[in-house]
Nucleic acid binder design. Structure first.
Lengths: 210, 210
DNA sequence: TTAGTTTTGTGAAAGTTACCACATGGAGGG
DNA sequence: CCCTCCATGTGGTAACTTTCACAAAACTAA
């Protein structure tokens, strides 16, 4: 079974496995079974094996998976064996926090450029260059950046996304509470914190909390 | 068809419909069909009707849905007809940004207390009180807060979650890159920005970008 | 009242995703 | 070398989600 249509849930779990494998490696564990991995990250063992089977055969029957190897295999499959340059658009509260967020680096992402309508008085971390929005298309095109984060006001998100697409960006992580509509060719993922909280309160309300 | 087990995707879409209904209301549109609503938020009309059917009959055949009514119905179903007090734990980069994020208020959430190990020199917005972590369990219990956001370092997330659960919190929105494990009775939702970016690069890699 | 139009609510089909259960094959011991 | 043990890889099935398609209902107009 090899690379056809991979469900999104599977890809999300790969990322989860990766994190878990990193922990195992830190603990000095060299081999892990799908049963143990499943226990650790709360996924059914058969599920794990099926997920991995989309991409090849990584395990050894009767033994399990070699932690280091599997980790590298998943990274390769997900395109994480190289560093990705990422552009961030919208250096407000959230944008600033994202720029300073250490987690991205750990995953092999480098937020190397940021854009805003207002560059005065904005403080970006070292290694990141701040440009005025009017330079966005040019800079992104010149650097060949393929991934961008949108953290602008929701009223501008759609427009910014379209501009990013024109500049050659192929993947967008959108924090604005809007479902961005783009012609295909660009992958958009939405992180909507308002919705997340609402899903939470829904379940609390169902269970009669409060 | 009425309240049994509601799929999580359905709940997420309810939140989406709500946002769309707000826009319709602002535009002065009073009635909307599932077809039009579906077009606007990119969801199949039958899907919308099925989603709503879990909770009752809100439409009028041959007419559609009254925007204002449906909005109120969805808000009621999701428990959004009242304000929820929310506690935030971990006032670092991300925590600070979340405290200042205006989006939560719009959805009827009030971040009224924040906790951190280090309260000196932290600047929280008006209307929000900052306490030392050692006070967390007491303050949350006294105020009867049921919802919390975790934005601490991942190494502390599990422990904080357990403490929150002891304090009576029933819903947790976790921004730390860890799958929190709690005995049932508490709903946990994870927002993992690293994973989101990884899913993005996976699809770019598949499509041969770069 | 009746005929015509429109859009809901929903049973059933189609399409996905998760899980079970077991044959398969590698590893190690005797 | 063979036999046993063990965990993978996978066919089949169950569970769940989405979509189709149409009867039922409401509104309109004559």
């Amino acid at each position: 079974m090899r690379r056809f249509k991979i469900p999104e849930v599977t890809v999300g779990r790969l990322s989860l496995y990766l994190r878990c494998l990193n922990e195992l490696e830190e603990e000095g564990i060299e081999v892990v079974s799908s049963a143990e991995l499943g226990r650790r990250c709360g996924v059914n063992p058969a599920q794990i094996r099926k997920d991995l089977a989309y991409f090849g055969e990584f395990g050894t029957r009767g033994v399990g998976y070699y932690v280091k190897e599997l980790k590298e295999d998943i990274k390769r499959v997900m395109g994480l064996n190289k560093t990705w340059e990422v552009a961030l658009v919208g250096v407000g509260n959230l944008g600033t926090a994202l720029l300073r967020y250490k987690g991205f680096q750990r995953h092999g992402f480098r937020l190397s450029v940021a854009f805003d309508h207002q560059t005065e008085g904005k403080d970006v971390p070292e290694g990141c260059e701040l440009y005025h929005s009017s330079e966005m298309e040019r800079v992104i095109r010149e650097r060949g950046i393929k991934v961008a984060i949108i953290s602008v006001h929701y009223s501008q998100a759609q427009q910014v996304a379209e501009e990013l697409a024109r500049a050659g960006v192929k993947g967008i992580l959108n924090f604005a509470p809007v479902r961005i509509q783009l012609s295909k060719g660009v992958v958009v993922r939405n992180v909507d914190m308002g919705t997340e909280l609402e899903i939470l309160t829904f379940y609390l309300t169902m269970k009669g909390t409060r």
